[in-house]
Each structure stands twice: as structure tokens, then as C-alpha cells.
């Protein structure tokens, strides 16, 4: 599978899904003009990756990093869907996944969103504050 790298814009995340490095990174702000056009390829890629891991015999270490500033309500829906896929990926026996959710220490909104994703999807997320 090819690495999926999406450059950030003023209204969309930077996304880097790098299989070779074992690192998936989501950064920035998300309120894309056309949310399905932006997020559907990301979900398709993650679903393909899930199938790859189900059919793979080798152990795989994966670190997922979210460091987000702001996302609108529709982007929240896509983050829920992404978290559901990550939960399934993390449940695959040969995958050793960690998910880190960074939030500014004073940012109650992003911290609460991280907690909601844990509660709503069951995804094991480490909440990590930073200055």
C-alpha cells in the first residue's frame, strides 16, 4: 500500500499515513469545503489497511498521533468513523497500536473531544496535554 500524505490547507488537516514508518499523523484544523471529498479517501485507505493487517502474519507496531486545533461538527463525525476503524485495527492480534491525542493544556474543547472519542468508540487513546 502507498503512503497517504495530504498537505494542510487553511481549512483542512495535514494527514500522513505512513506504513513504512508505522506512524499515522493528523494535525491542524478541519472544516473542509467538501468534507466527503476530503475524508472518504482517508477512510477508504484505513479500511484497506485494516484488511491488509487482517491478512498479514507479521507483527506490526503502529503509532497514531492526533494534534488538532479545531474541527467542525462534520469533521467530528469523520473523526468518530476514523476512530472506529482504528479500534478495529488495534484489535487485530498482530497489531501493536498506540494512539496519542495531544491537546493544549488550556484547551478544554480538544481535551473533551478526546474523552468523547474514548467513551463513544472504545478506542484506547492516551490524552497528552502540552504547553
Amino acid at each position: 500500500m502507498q503512503r497517504l500524505k495530504i498537505q494542510p490547507t487553511e481549512s483542512s488537516f495535514s494527514i500522513d499515513l505512513n506504513i513504512e514508518k508505522g506512524e499515522f499523523i493528523f494535525l491542524g484544523e478541519s472544516r473542509p469545503e467538501n468534507a466527503p471529498r476530503f475524508f472518504d479517501p482517508v477512510l477508504d485507505w484505513l479500511n484497506d489497511f485494516e484488511n491488509l493487517m487482517i491478512n498479514s502474519k507479521r507483527n506490526y507496531d503502529l503509532k497514531v498521533i492526533f494534534k488538532l486545533d479545531y474541527f467542525n461538527s462534520t469533521s467530528t463525525k469523520y473523526l468518530v468513523d476514523i476512530s472506529k476503524v482504528l479500534k478495529r485495527i488495534g484489535d487485530i492480534d498482530n497489531v501493536n497500536q498506540t494512539v496519542e491525542w495531544y491537546y493544549k493544556e488550556i484547551d478544554e474543547d480538544i481535551e473533551e473531544s478526546g474523552r468523547e472519542l474514548i467513551e463513544w468508540t472504545g478506542l484506547d487513546i492516551q490524552l497528552i496535554p502540552y504547553d
Partner: peptide, 22 residues
């Protein structure tokens, strides 16, 4: 809000339709 985000579908306008709830 939670139910729409967990089980709702993106509508024809490309949104999940929870803006007013939020």
C-alpha cells in the same frame, strides 16, 4: 448529538447535520 455522530450518515449536502445541536 452523540447518536447522530455514531450512527448518522452524511447527507446530500455533505454534512452530518449536527451544527445546531453543537
Amino acid at each position: 448529538y452523540k447518536e447522530k455522530l455514531l450512527t448518522g450518515e452524511i447527507n446530500q449536502k455533505g454534512t452530518i447535520g449536527v451544527g445546531m445541536e453543537l
